[in-house]
Design a protein around this nucleic acid. Structure first.
Length: 525
RNA sequence: GCCCCCUUCGUCUAGUGGCCUAGGAUUCAUGGUUCUCAUCCAUGCGACAGGGGUUCAAAUCCCCUAGGGGGUACCA
């Protein structure tokens, strides 16, 4: 048995979208599952639309998702693999060779029809509601004299495949099963443009042969191309690869996924929006395939172990942004705090004064730890931690904070002032930007109730809580009421980490100042 | 127009004739934990597109209808 070889063959005419990424992934996963090779081939024969920029974006997108290739274009170093070149525009000689052979054998012929005639033909067919729309074989049986006459006119021919007429082709598709297609549906398709540049179906076959491709997984829009290609393999006396045509990803309305659909972006945009790549990978794997009856979250290795192309569904799947977001949260929570800090670094850095990350590593670790289970996208970090770095002493309240604060407004000034005094008398950590590494090094947040007492050089959250509760009891304040205006004053919002973690992270000077500032502003009303 | 494919909770899916009063995940709702939010836990709402067959028995097999998707390029 020949070694399994699969390929993803994008054309660099635009960014890598989710559908393409999923196709690449299924090829990749099947190659890995079969112990074969995964090849990346660039189909750049559409010179009008192919750009190097698109190529780079596709390469980057695949790498971001962790879809690596054994053979294909270079990333940094040398091109990989011995079946190259992996760019079709660098393989023109190979196509020429095969086309000459096919013309000689009669499987292909020269066609001198102009684009204008073809357009008219199509119009005419549509107008009379013809059941067949396509090339009419006008140049199929030109005599040498007729050909010479057209050459003399200066017409440059393209080359068409001579389709067998009225033949039922049996196709075995790994996903669809056995399908019969009558060649009446297909016309004599163009293999090569007048300039010698091949078209998709032709180049694809030549390369699949040249690269020893054994399985082809691609979108179902290629199903009929598979039939054309199968016939070409036959004409060439070669065994075609096994085909698997996967259904398309649909938008919320059930239509074809397009760039204009909300929430649908190119792979790199998801990266730039802060989606963890593992989550995107995991989520799109699920669009048309199930890992198991009771689990949706799995690693790449687990996918490779479980992946069977035959178990990919035949129906198109709708893209559901909400589930993707849930999946993102799953991954963020799965990380260790240290991993989370690493992932969040690029997002946090620009949101903080220069040097903060380097000089306050322990503090930052604690900040990230407090938000790890409250975040789905990495991009949420900067906003969430903004209150810690705010320059204003009197923070602006958001709607939730405003509402909860107003509930206790009559007592607020008194409570806040009293609490500020308590905190001032306590042994809290210093406030950023002072060095608070000793405190943060000793106390790991988020603090938990049953965590052992720390050997902190200052009050830890548990100690702060004890003092706070003592204060509210002494004053006869309901603890549940007290908490809200305090949180508002300290963070400007009504949500976030536990209040004593908040106080700990803020440190003495800032916490006290914020409490008094709000107390003053209420008193001034 | 013609050809091909598809159709289980809103969404992703499990299910290949009896294990299905259809399972899981997500979303939503409710409750619990709690200083808020989030997490976590529990509970609930929620589907076999419709109609005919075949069979002792059908989500599972067949047919029709409807709806959806794809193709029908000198794009890939």
């Amino acid at each position: 048995m020949t070694a399994p070889r699969l390929r993803f063959a994008p054309s660099p005419t635009g960014p890598l979208h989710l559908g393409g990424a999923r196709t690449a992934m299924y090829n990749w996963a099947l190659a890995r599952a079969l112990g074969g090779k995964f090849i990346l081939r660039i189909e750049d024969t559409d010179q009008q639309r192919s750009t190097d920029e698109s190529l780079q974006i596709i390469l980057e997108g695949l790498q971001w998702l962790g879809i690596d290739w054994d053979e294909g274009p270079a990333v940094g170093g040398e091109p990989r693999g011995e079946h190259g070149p992996y760019f079709q525009m660098q393989r023109l000689d190979l196509y020429r060779e095969v086309i000459d052979q096919l013309v000689a054998s009669g499987h292909a012929y020269l066609c001198y029809c102009t684009p204008e005639r073809l357009a008219e033909l199509r119009e005419e067919q549509k107008a009379r509601k013809s059941s067949f729309i396509g090339y009419d074989g006008h140049c199929r049986d030109l005599t040498p004299e007729e050909r010479a006459a057209r050459e003399a006119e200066g017409l440059v021919p393209n080359i068409r495949f001579r389709m067998p007429e009225d033949r039922v082709v049996k196709v075995h598709d790994l996903i669809r099963g056995e399908v019969e297609v009558n060649t009446k549906q297909l016309d004599d398709w163009v293999m090569m443009r007048p300039g010698g540049v091949p078209l998709y179906n032709f180049a694809c076959v030549v390369d699949d042969i040249g690269m020893g491709i054994t399985h082809v997984v691609r979108g179902e829009e290629h199903f009929l191309n598979g039939v054309k290609q199968q016939l070409l393999f036959e004409a060439l006396g070669k065994e075609p690869p096994q085909y698997a045509h996967i259904p398309l990803i649909l938008n919320q309305k059930g239509g074809k996924l397009s760039k204009r659909d909300p929430g649908v972006k190119s792979v790199l945009e998801y990266r730039d929006l802060g989606y963890p790549p593992e989550a995107v990978f995991n989520y799109i794997a699920l669009l048309g395939w199930g890992f198991s009856a009771d689990r949706d979250v799995f690693t790449r290795d687990e996918m490779v172990d479980a992946f069977k192309i035959a178990s990919v569904g035949k129906a198109g799947a709708k893209f559901d942004l909400e589930k993707l977001h849930w999946m993102c949260g799953e991954y963020v929570r799965q990380w260790s705090v240290e991993q989370c800090v690493e992932r969040a670094r690029a997002w946090l850095e620009p949101a903080m004064p220069a040097g903060t990350m380097a000089q306050h590593g322990a503090w930052l670790r604690n900040i990230v730890a407090c938000y790890q289970e409250r975040v789905q996208l990495l991009s949420e970090f900067p906003d969430k931690v903004g209150w810690l770095f705010a320059k204003d002493v009197r923070l602006e309240f958001d709607a939730g904070a405003e509402k909860k604060f107003n509930k206790h407004k009559e007592h607020a000034a008194e409570w806040l002032r009293g609490y500020a005094d308590v905190l001032e008398a306590s042994d809290l950590p210093p406030s950023w930007p002072e060095d608070r590494s000793a405190a943060d090094g000793a106390v790991l947040l988020p603090s938990q109730k049953d965590a052992p007492a720390t050997a902190a050089p200052c009050d830890d959250p548990a100690a702060i809580e004890a003092k706070t509760r003592a204060f509210t009891e002494e004053r006869g304040i309901k603890f549940g009421h007290f908490v809200h205006p305090v949180r508002a004053a300290l963070t400007g919002t009504d949500r976030g980490p536990g209040l004593f973690d908040v106080v700990f992270l803020l440190g003495k000077a800032t916490a006290v100042a914020r409490l008094r500032a709000v107390a003053d502003s209420v008193a001034a009303d």
